[in-house]
């Protein structure tokens, strides 16, 4: 089947097998290897991307279902070499160790903040329930998400990754702090 998908701002047209998962399309066809596969039961969240602005586990979506959609992966978040505030917060708060869960965690966290721009600790923990991390014990991930929240203007909009370059620049934290 022929599909046309915009991924990280670039339009691709491809013939894919109907059974091909979106995550395999991204990794194997487009070389978007920043998005990873951690399980085969849709439990780990490592493969999380945004489909038309909302987080999905790309291992539970078929590539054909993304036809006509906009997909954003962790590779499409930075603007002009500047990281998205959530990426920056993960760095600032040491919210990753091996980094395997990180792309999915970041994509989920952005979605969470779009729904709830100022989540308390409990809301962050529950909002990330579908994303597993074996390294960090989650504490610094929770801290990073709340730090990012405090640095992104309230109501950043449903698709936080679409904030303009100037907004990202002005919000990019220059030092650590904030959070819980």
């Amino acid at each position: 089947m022929r599909i046309t998908v915009s991924v990280d701002g670039t339009k691709y047209t491809d013939d894919v097998e109907p059974r091909m998962l979106l995550v395999h399309y991204l990794r194997e066809r487009l070389g978007k290897t920043g998005t990873v596969v951690g399980c085969d039961t849709s439990n780990c969240g490592a493969c999380t991307v945004h489909l038309d602005g909302h987080s999905v586990k790309s291992c539970s979506v078929l590539a054909v279902q993304a036809d006509g959609c906009e997909v954003t992966t962790v590779e499409g978040l930075a603007r002009d070499g500047r990281m998205h505030p959530v990426q920056q917060a993960f760095h600032d708060n040491h919210a990753l160790q091996c980094g395997f869960c990180t792309p999915g965690m970041i994509m989920q966290a952005i979605d969470l903040l779009a729904d709830d721009p100022d989540p308390d600790e409990n809301a962050v923990r529950h909002g990330l329930e579908g994303n597993l991390c074996r390294c960090t014990g989650y504490q610094n991930i929770v801290r990073a998400v709340r730090d990012a929240a405090s640095k992104m203007a309230p109501g950043a909009g449903p698709v936080a990754e679409q904030v303009s370059d100037s907004e990202i620049t002005s919000r990019a934290p220059s030092h650590t702090g904030g959070g819980s």
């Binding site: 290897t33 920043g34 993960f90 760095h91 040491h94 980094g99």
Partner: peptide, 17 residues
């Protein structure tokens, strides 16, 4: 802050797969 983060949080990783 860690040097290794930059590639890991931007998806420029080198996993074996």
């Amino acid at each position: 802050l860690r040097k290794e983060d930059a590639r890991l949080i931007t998806g420029r990783t080198r996993w074996t797969d």
